[in-house]
Simulated assay, not measured.
Amino acid sequence: MTQSVDKLQILWNPKAGPQERNAASLAQIKSEHGEQVCVHVTDSEEHSAQLTKQLIEQGARRIAAAGGDGVINVVADAILRANRPDVTLAVLPSGTGNDYARSLGLPLSPVEVMSSAITDSPATLDVFELQGNPDLSRFGVNMLAGGNTGEYTRQLTDEVKQQWGAFCFLRGAFGVLQNLEVFPLELQFDDGPPLQVNALNLFVANGRCAGAGLPVAPNALLNDGWLDVVVVLEGTAVQLAQLALTYVVGDPREHELIVARRVRRLTVRSEKTMAWAVDGQEFSASELTATIHPARLPVIVGPTNPAVTAQA
């Protein structure tokens, strides 16, 4: 694999997001920035991870993940496992959800991000590490979600988003109120005593958004050294409808069905195996621990970004 280490190395997933639009974006990027970039087309997540590792070994210092949150997670995980704090991650949002890009304050267009991806200095951001059973070991950059979140996001079709706009969160919640599974959980926040809850959803947020822009943790910061934990408890249909509305017009942390904490480490134990997703990467586990790693990954961020505090 021949490449210049001084160029921006782009790992492009052609299957992510709207393929025709992304193909046009790639053609425009090659036309406008061809001398400054090397494009590597990937055909699987394993291929993306392997290419990232090879690029780092060959001396690359700036790698861009072009695709959805899943591809970004794969590339970020590979950079972090290489333990190379001199390698910068750039994000070219071309997936469906683009939640990490939203948390970074980036334009949701790979073409519009290119100039900053090539030339801007990065901010050093937090990441989190997951350990659990069976054989779970992975880094995350934006959001860990467990419980009924997969069923909820399946309700948010493009038609629902277009018709309901910002209120699609409310509409999507209504769609799953009758089909929610309850998960008895034991939660341990840092070194505190275990807390027993019956949960519908659980979010561990480094960034602010999940599910294509839903403000799960609207006050989370990407470089404050904390994880924002949001637990949605079991409740009646009426209570859950009120909670969904609170997400649109109020502060959900004040709702009776919400447990909200800021932690450096969270351990979750479930009586049954739960479905989880970290930055869109799906897996199952009955026990896991999420631990914050402050100031671990250099990342290109948007010019005005409320989710990143100023760095000296």
Rank of each mutant, 00 (worst) to 15 (best):
I10N: 02
I10V: 15
I10R: 00
L11A: 03
W12K: 00
N13G: 04
N13H: 05
P14E: 04
A16Q: 02
A16W: 01
P18R: 14
Q19C: 10
R21C: 07
A24V: 08
A24S: 12
S25M: 00
A27Y: 08
Q28V: 13
Q28G: 07
K30D: 11
K30G: 09
S31K: 15
E32L: 15
H33Q: 10
G34F: 11
G34A: 12
G34S: 12
Q36R: 14
V39E: 12
V39T: 11
V41M: 11
V41G: 06
V41H: 07
T42E: 02
T42Y: 01
D43A: 11
E45H: 11
H47S: 09
H47N: 13
S48Q: 04
L51F: 08
L51K: 08
Q54H: 14
L55D: 04
L55K: 07
E57G: 12
E57S: 13
A60P: 06
R61D: 06
R62E: 09
A65D: 06
A66G: 13
A66R: 03
A66H: 08
G67K: 05
G70A: 11
V71W: 05
I72D: 02
V75Y: 00
A76Q: 05
D77G: 02
D77F: 03
A78N: 08
A78F: 05
L80H: 02
A82E: 07
A82M: 09
R84Q: 14
R84N: 10
R84M: 08
P85I: 08
V87I: 11
V87Q: 02
V87P: 01
T88A: 09
L89D: 00
V91R: 01
V91H: 01
V91Y: 02
V91D: 02
P93L: 01
S94I: 01
S94G: 10
